[in-house]
Design a protein around this nucleic acid. Structure first.
Length: 757
DNA sequence: AGTAGTTTCATTTTT
DNA sequence: TGAAACTACT
């Protein structure tokens, strides 16, 4: 008998469904992995299994994810599990893999060797400029909409020539923009995110040699978060797999929350048709949450139709009930959250174990305000990332221009940043000249500086500056070049001036940070000098060798980097529900669970409730032990107070999972209207002691006449009601009351003749 | 060129 | 309400 490797570590920690998936014969598998069911583990163990047991070479494995974080985590975990070196294995994001192919086959892909990547912001700016050049007005052709349309076309693998002219004026104009935008990209050697995928797809589809090569190479394709794939990504995977490659796709249709940016859950169903013999494995045992939390999640998601079907279970016991809090307004809601956070922090909970999730970013402001006041450290996810910062992009534009003088996008950015007396008029002229002779801005600037009037000299100086910079930095290390760029372009001086001008504290502080970021950029460049991250694995000829500058610029575009300050700090985590996907926390707060906010107004209007429900499902299933839900009866939205009703989703959560933490006052629609007797809401002010002593968004909490916010009152005509807010003083004092029968009224306090109850 | 005043517009976001 | 983008001054 042959000496088999010890495979026990590959299986010992797996349940039977996981084992089924991991040890499946090399055939197509679709793993329906519920939240917290160990999907990453299955993926990682599957790869280890293929290598260790099926004797598959790491070279013939392709593992694709959506985020860089997922990719690096996967690689790290495989490395822990397998002794074989896996440096040569292709593990990466869709975009990263596509980029790799395009670097290797730039010629066949019809790209210049030194092509660069446009990030979303670059793309937007370029589209905007393209529209201007076409005399398409911003009002009639919003750049955002045009950009979105172009990307949508690319994601459906449609080139301008594939679009049938329907005689529709709008479509024609869009098409005109698309065509011109493509031409600009081509001329500047630029590739946007969607283009990376589309080119790689076309290359794998149309180039027989390349197709054969990769089909031969990749016997095993593994995909994470399969429910998030778009049409183009799916088509690419099919092409790469051909008839011989086996697909191992892991996903959860119930966690599909990105349809609005092109994700197609249907790909999960299509896979069963397109990849013959696909077997479905369900992972339903959940290792994350308590029974109660799972019951709530299951009950909720069962309302969706067209599910592939799945029911999560656990054997760890029910745990605590989910707490629901009905707040008066968003401040009261934040106070409630802060109070509960305190309780957990007083126990032995780390800050980082606590997360606050919300539907829209705007909701974070009030939470922040209250957390600052409560001196609870927090961190908001979703800010600007390092390489997206203005000053960083400014500096990178110079590097890109050094790399490729004909990169118009970078020329536009660098030429007058900092100001060099090359204003809008001059640039307009320069653009015209460039377009007329079909050359880059750079070429136009070199040839036609004389035609540019007084500013011509400035343009000439800029051209000379770039040339000098290039000559003088030739052969220098990347970090040194970067340092020179920052120093000699005047960027550092520019921000130093702003920082030093001491205009109050706001601007100056910001510029201070920008200077630090520029220094940070130099350090970042240093780590690319040895080109460590892109060093080709000796055994894999398919690893592109990138010079440090290319590697650095690519990294900047493809991995925008960490956002803001130290993730090392122990902080309460604030983020949107979308951003929380894939994460888990012992204690989770979901705030703003109100109709119109969650589900969002839009979703309701467009009948998109199912995706919104999945989003709630995602939120609920982030929680390990404790889950808190809250909504506000009054909320300021876009500066206007709006009356909120509890989210319709709350009624879809099995009532026995939920406990209302305190009886609410008054007459408001209860979350579980049919279940709870009206009387149960009649007692107390419903305010937390803290909240009652503080201001609220509606105004003060103590009004004239000795009324309190939340107090129950009686009106001769309108009957019983609850005080929602106060406004104004003296004779003009108004009071806002929600009456049981008459709805919300604003009354002059002097005439209202309210009686306290 | 820089700023102050005005207008507009408001899910969700990774690559 | 408040940020960001845009316009109109100086």
């Amino acid at each position: 008998m042959q000496d088999l490797p010890d495979i026990s570590p590959l299986l010992v920690a797996l349940n039977s469904a996981q084992k089924d998936a991991v040890t499946a014969p090399p055939e197509h598998r679709l793993v329906l992995a519920g939240a917290g069911s160990g999907k990453t583990r299955v993926l990682v163990h599957r790869i280890a299994w293929l290598i260790a047991v099926e004797n598959v070479s790491p070279l013939s494995i392709l593992a694709v994810t959506f985020t860089n974080k997922a990719a690096s985590e996967m690689r790290a975990r495989i490395e822990q599990l397998v002794t074989a070196p896996i440096r040569s294995m292709w593990v990466g994001t869709f975009h990263g893999i596509a980029h790799r192919m395009l670097r290797l086959h730039w010629k066949q892909a019809g790209l210049p060797q030194n092509f660069q990547i446009l990030d979303a912001d670059d793309q937007f700016r370029l589209v905007k400029r393209t529209l201007k050049a076409l005399d398409m007005s911003d009002e009639q052709w919003p750049p955002r909409a045009v950009t979105g349309w172009i990307n949508a076309q690319k994601e459906e693998a449609r080139r301008p020539r594939d679009l049938v002219d329907l005689g529709d004026y709008t479509q024609r104009q869009y098409l005109r923009a698309y065509t011109a935008y493509e031409a600009s990209c081509a001329q500047s050697g630029l590739v946007d995110f969607a283009e990376l995928l589309l080119r790689a797809y076309e290359l794998s589809r149309d180039d027989e040699q390349i197709q054969a090569h990769y089909r031969r190479r990749f016997g095993h394709i593994l995909v994470d978060e399969f429910q998030d794939t778009n049409t183009l990504q799916y088509a690419w995977l099919r092409t790469l797999a051909g008839d011989s490659g086996t697909m191992f796709a892991v996903g959860d249709d119930d966690q599909s929350i990105y349809s609005w940016r092109g994700a197609r859950v249907e790909n999960m169903v299509r896979m069963e048709h397109d990849f013959p013999g696909t077997e479905v494995v369900r992972l339903e045992q959940n290792y994350r949450s308590t029974g109660t939390i799972l019951k709530a999640a299951n009950g909720l998601i069962a309302r969706n139709t067209n599910r592939l079907g799945k029911n999560l279970w656990t054997d760890v016991g029910d745990g605590e009930a989910i707490q629901l809090y009905a707040a008066f307004n968003e401040y009261d809601e934040a106070e409630f959250v802060a109070g509960r956070l305190r309780e957990h922090l007083d126990g032995r909970c780390r800050h980082a174990d606590l997360a606050i999730l919300y539907r829209s970013n705007a909701q974070s402001r009030v939470l922040e305000e209250i957390l600052i006041r409560a001196r609870i450290p927090y961190r908001i996810y979703g800010g600007l990332r390092f390489f997206e910062r203005q000053e960083i992009k400014d500096a990178l534009a110079y590097l890109r221009l050094l790399h490729n003088r004909h990169d118009d996008s970078s020329f536009e950015r660098a030429v007058n940043t900092p100001a060099r007396g090359i204003g809008a008029t001059t640039m307009d002229r320069l653009r015209h000249i460039a377009r007329a002779s079909e050359v880059s801005l750079w070429t136009a600037a070199r040839n036609a500086a004389g035609q540019l009037g007084r500013s011509g000299a400035n343009v000439g100086r800029f051209v000379q500056f770039i040339e000098d910079l290039h000559a003088q930095t030739a052969g220098q290390a990347l970090s040194a070049v970067t340092e020179q760029v920052i120093a000699r372009s005047g960027l550092r001086e520019h921000f130093r001036k702003v920082a030093g001008s001491g205009a109050g504290s706001g601007r100056g502080d910001q510029a201070e940070g920008r200077l630090e970021n520029l220094d940070e950029l130099v350090s970042a460049a240093r780590s690319f000098e040895s080109d460590a991250s892109a060093r080709p694995a000796a055994e894999d000829p398919d690893m592109p060798v990138l010079d440090p500058l290319t590697a650095f610029l690519t990294h900047a575009a493809l991995e925008a980097g960490e956002e803001q300050a130290g993730p090392g700090e122990d902080c309460v985590q604030l983020m949107t529900l979308h951003a929380a996907k894939g994460l888990e926390f012992p204690v989770v707060f979901i705030v703003g669970v109100e109709n119109g906010l969650f589900p969002s107004m839009r979703a309701v209007d467009e009948g998109n409730l199912e995706e919104e429900r999945r989003l709630f499902y995602v939120g609920i299933t982030r929680a390990r032990r404790r889950l808190y839900l809250s909504y506000a009866e009054l909320r300021r939205v876009h500066g206007v107070e709006q009356i909120g009703a509890p989210s319709l989703f709350l009624k879809e959560v099995p009532p026995e999972c939920v406990m209302e933490t305190r009886p609410r006052t008054g007459v408001l629609r209860p979350a579980f209207g049919t279940r709870e007797p009206q009387g149960a809401y009649g007692r107390g002010s419903g305010l937390t002691p803290g909240a009652a002593a503080r201001r609220t968004a509606a105004g003060r909490d103590h009004g004239p006449g000795g009324f309190r916010l939340g107090q129950r009152v009686q009106h001769a005509k309108f009957g019983e009601g609850t005080i929602l807010g106060f406004d104004g003083d003296g004779d003009r004092a108004q009071i806002e009351v929600r009456f049981r029968d008459a709805g919300v009224k604003r009354l002059m306090l002097g005439f209202a003749n309210l009686r306290g109850m």
